[in-house]
Design a protein around this nucleic acid. Sequence first.
DNA 1: ACAAATGATACTGATTTGGTATCATTTCAT
DNA 2: ATGAAATGATACCAAATCAGTATCATTTGT
Lengths: 138, 138
Amino acid sequence: MKLITRETDYAIRALVHIAKSDKEIVTVTDLVETTAVPRPFLRKLLQTLNREGVLKSFKGKSGGFTLALSPEEILITRIITIFQGTMQLNECMFKKDICPNTETCSLRKILNNIQDYATRSFAGVTLKEIMKEEPHES
Amino acid sequence: MKLITRETDYAIRALVHIAKSDKEIVTVTDLVETTAVPRPFLRKLLQTLNREGVLKSFKGKSGGFTLALSPEEILITRIITIFQGTMQLNECMFKKDICPNTETCSLRKILNNIQDYATRSFAGVTLKEIMKEEPHES
DNA sequence: ACAAATGATACTGATTTGGTATCATTTCAT
DNA sequence: ATGAAATGATACCAAATCAGTATCATTTGT
């Protein structure tokens, strides 16, 4: 299974391109060229980012998108949450009353640790870090 | 998203029950009572574990299942792999030629770290650890 | 007025997940 | 022998999620 869906990935890539662009305002057409994401899908995704206040959109001719926040204000977890909901790796399959025993809790513990690690890994990571040419060391 | 699917979870729970059971041979009926997993689904799942050599089955009246290996020989990752395939959290959405740039690689790095942590967390963990009453410390 | 952009929204198709249903086969107990 | 009680094999089904399409409405610069 994947931690990041295609949509989230597309979104991040689009944001990086917008952030790096020389242009004041970036159009879907620009992004289709640079990201190779199917146009209608990309549009929907950008509209979502606009509604969520990550992008700012301008309608009409010579319209397009800009970041609504600076790259260091855009948390990657925010983008993930928008498209995938809260990242919860350790969801228990069972209601508390079905699973009162401690048998599988040892497994839960492992899952919880991984969840915590993931949370710590993403903590504070913004678009700015992701934009960097050099992979960031964690 | 979840690291462990329902099926894997069911399977582990069933294995724990079989391992803990007083009976030499455990039937599906026994397990339906103790695990509350839908019978046909449980059957399919046990048959899979049998085919994979984790369980040993006995047909006919007074038949049922036993572990094919001792609890300390059954790796949890094995069970996960059987039902979910290899746990690969950091699959890249894009072919190398579509994604030659380093832009998102910083994100990949984070995903890789989480993947590695998960792998380390599960390394060497067997059914025996999972069976313990006290959650194991990692 | 019209072209070029986004907004809103409904729909579609593929895949995965969780679960059912059926029939065949084996084996113990009588 | 035979029948009940177990698993083996397999095909099917339904809901959810994921990825993507299609359409029409609205805005705006020239």
